[in-house]
């Protein structure tokens, strides 16, 4: 679910993951999770090992678990799907206590939970150690097309401003006696969403004019180019190499 993003996850710190350049970290995250997804589903032990590796990586960030726990909740809808899977999937049946469930469904459900959790844990480890601004710099460095980088940069810059506006509109509604508990409140909430669009759009116009008056020519200047040493690349490649080796090993032995 996309709801409940009050603010981004980044937490300041000085750990190896915090110090890695963002473009290196981004590539490491993508390749690591892709390798985890490529592990064949029946290899539950391998997947569990990779999940523990991701948890260990997250632990090196020294971010308080209480800050992380709500983030891991984004998985809930798919955890429910995974729990239903053994009952609806086809294939040979197997006894599980008092229940009879589909064997491939059960195997897939366990693999799905392990892979999904590994992905979330790895992404949280990235998110808590990377400033939103650095994500944009990494995208720019990795030659993502300019318009997308620009949209992303305005998004991370103004998301808190617009979220604040949304909060003020909510306070204004509440202080006028509004209580949204049923479908009857939808016209008010939807009109508020419409007003938010007009305000965001007009803010965009003001930002654009302000930028033009300061010499904007359609390109963001790169003031501090990103660099990475061989050591940093090697460090970032370690989890990926472990996951690739695990995926190949599990494929050969299955």
């Amino acid at each position: 679910m996309g709801s409940g993003h009050s603010s981004h996850l980044h937490v300041d710190g000085d750990t190896p993951l915090h110090r890695l350049p963002p473009h290196v970290k981004l590539l490491a995250l993508l390749t690591f999770v892709l390798a985890v997804v490529a592990v064949p589903s029946p290899a539950h032990g391998v997947l569990l090992g990779l999940l523990l590796l991701a948890v260990a990586l997250l632990a090196t960030t020294r971010v308080a678990p209480r800050h992380l726990a709500p983030r891991l909740a984004v998985e809930t809808p798919f955890a429910i799907f995974a729990l239903v899977l053994p009952f609806v999937a086809t294939g040979p049946r197997v006894e599980l206590g008092p229940l009879t469930v589909s064997e491939p469904g059960l195997a897939a459900a366990v693999a799905l939970l392990l892979k999904g959790t590994t992905g979330v844990v790895a992404a949280v480890a990235f998110a808590v150690t990377t400033r939103p601004r650095d994500l944009v710099r990494a995208l720019q460095h990795l030659r993502v097309p300019d318009p997308l980088v620009l949209i992303a940069s305005f998004m991370v810059r103004y998301v808190d401003v617009v979220a604040d506006q949304l909060r003020r509109m909510r306070v204004a509604r509440l202080s006028r006696g509004f209580s949204g508990r049923s479908v009857r409140s939808w016209p008010v909430l939807a009109a508020g969403t419409g007003a938010l669009f007009i305000r965001s759009y007009e803010r965009g116009e003001r930002v654009h004019l302000a930028m033009v008056s300061r010499g904007w020519n359609g390109r963001m200047p790169v003031t501090h180019p990103l660099t990475a040493t061989r050591g940093q690349w090697a460090l970032a490649a370690l989890p990926t190499l472990v996951a690739v080796a695990a995926a190949i090993g599990a494929r050969l032995s299955s």
Partner: peptide
């Protein structure tokens, strides 16, 4: 900037 604010 307009597209960015629409994304926001």
């Amino acid at each position: 900037p307009l597209a960015g604010l629409v994304a926001v």
